[in-house]
Measured scan of single mutants.
Amino acid sequence: VSVELPAPSSWKKLFYPNKVGSVKKTEVVFVAPTGEEISNRKQLEQYLKSHPGNPAIAEFDWTTSG
């Protein structure tokens, strides 16, 4: 189950709350306009370098507050 949070234009930000008793931590995933899922800052940096014209990296908020 995921919750969609505010994201930069043409992107989606999905929040996957951890299940009770789960060892997996809460996860935030950005979905690029191409449909590619980005789950960490390093991936995001690589994606933005190879896909010019996207929002600046500073516009991506990895917190769950939206």
Rank of each mutant, 00 (worst) to 15 (best):
residue 1 V to E: 13
residue 1 V to D: 12
residue 1 V to F: 11
residue 2 S to W: 13
residue 2 S to C: 15
residue 2 S to K: 09
residue 3 V to I: 14
residue 3 V to R: 08
residue 3 V to W: 08
residue 3 V to L: 09
residue 3 V to M: 08
residue 3 V to G: 06
residue 4 E to I: 09
residue 4 E to K: 07
residue 4 E to V: 09
residue 5 L to S: 05
residue 5 L to Y: 09
residue 6 P to N: 07
residue 7 A to P: 15
residue 7 A to L: 04
residue 7 A to D: 03
residue 7 A to V: 05
residue 7 A to C: 07
residue 8 P to Y: 04
residue 8 P to E: 05
residue 9 S to C: 15
residue 9 S to G: 15
residue 9 S to L: 10
residue 9 S to Y: 09
residue 10 S to I: 04
residue 10 S to K: 15
residue 11 W to F: 03
residue 12 K to I: 10
residue 12 K to F: 05
residue 12 K to Y: 06
residue 13 K to S: 02
residue 13 K to C: 06
residue 13 K to E: 05
residue 14 L to S: 03
residue 14 L to F: 15
residue 15 F to D: 02
residue 15 F to P: 02
residue 16 Y to R: 10
residue 16 Y to S: 05
residue 16 Y to N: 05
residue 16 Y to T: 07
residue 17 P to Q: 11
residue 17 P to N: 08
residue 17 P to K: 09
residue 17 P to G: 07
residue 18 N to G: 12
residue 18 N to R: 09
residue 19 K to N: 12
residue 19 K to G: 14
residue 20 V to D: 12
residue 20 V to W: 11
residue 22 S to I: 09
residue 22 S to H: 10
residue 22 S to Q: 11
residue 22 S to M: 10
residue 22 S to R: 10
residue 23 V to E: 15
residue 23 V to R: 13
residue 23 V to K: 14
residue 24 K to R: 14
residue 24 K to S: 14
residue 24 K to V: 12
residue 25 K to F: 12
residue 26 T to W: 15
residue 26 T to Y: 15
residue 27 E to W: 14
residue 27 E to M: 14
residue 27 E to A: 15
residue 28 V to G: 01
residue 28 V to L: 08
residue 29 V to Y: 08
residue 29 V to S: 06
residue 30 F to M: 02
residue 31 V to D: 00
residue 31 V to T: 04
residue 31 V to Q: 06
residue 31 V to A: 02
residue 32 A to D: 00
residue 32 A to W: 01
residue 32 A to K: 00
residue 32 A to I: 00
residue 33 P to R: 02
residue 34 T to C: 04
residue 34 T to A: 02
residue 35 G to D: 02
residue 36 E to M: 04
residue 36 E to T: 04
residue 36 E to R: 03
residue 36 E to G: 02
residue 36 E to L: 04
residue 37 E to H: 15
residue 37 E to V: 15
residue 37 E to N: 10
residue 37 E to S: 10
residue 37 E to A: 11
residue 38 I to K: 00
residue 38 I to S: 00
residue 38 I to H: 01
residue 39 S to C: 13
residue 39 S to W: 12
residue 40 N to Q: 06
residue 40 N to M: 04
residue 40 N to P: 00
residue 40 N to W: 02
residue 40 N to F: 04
residue 41 R to C: 12
residue 41 R to K: 13
residue 41 R to S: 11
residue 41 R to N: 09
residue 42 K to H: 13
residue 42 K to T: 11
residue 42 K to L: 12
residue 43 Q to G: 06
residue 43 Q to T: 08
residue 43 Q to K: 06
residue 44 L to V: 01
residue 44 L to C: 02
residue 45 E to Y: 10
residue 45 E to L: 10
residue 46 Q to M: 11
residue 47 Y to G: 00
residue 47 Y to H: 02
residue 47 Y to D: 00
residue 47 Y to C: 00
residue 47 Y to I: 01
residue 48 L to Y: 02
residue 50 S to M: 12
residue 50 S to N: 12
residue 50 S to Y: 08
residue 50 S to T: 14
residue 50 S to F: 09
residue 51 H to I: 02
residue 52 P to M: 04
residue 52 P to I: 04
residue 52 P to S: 05
residue 52 P to E: 06
residue 52 P to G: 05
residue 53 G to H: 06
residue 53 G to Y: 03
residue 53 G to L: 05
residue 53 G to W: 05
residue 53 G to Q: 05
residue 53 G to N: 08
residue 53 G to P: 03
residue 54 N to D: 02
residue 54 N to T: 07
residue 54 N to V: 04
residue 55 P to T: 03
residue 55 P to A: 06
residue 55 P to E: 03
residue 56 A to V: 08
residue 57 I to P: 09
residue 57 I to R: 04
residue 57 I to Q: 07
residue 57 I to C: 05
residue 58 A to K: 10
residue 59 E to Y: 05
residue 60 F to L: 01
residue 60 F to C: 02
residue 60 F to W: 01
residue 60 F to K: 02
residue 61 D to K: 06
residue 61 D to T: 07
residue 62 W to C: 03
residue 63 T to L: 05
residue 64 T to W: 11
residue 64 T to C: 09
residue 65 S to N: 13
residue 65 S to W: 08
residue 66 G to R: 10
residue 66 G to D: 14
residue 66 G to W: 08
residue 66 G to S: 12
residue 66 G to K: 11
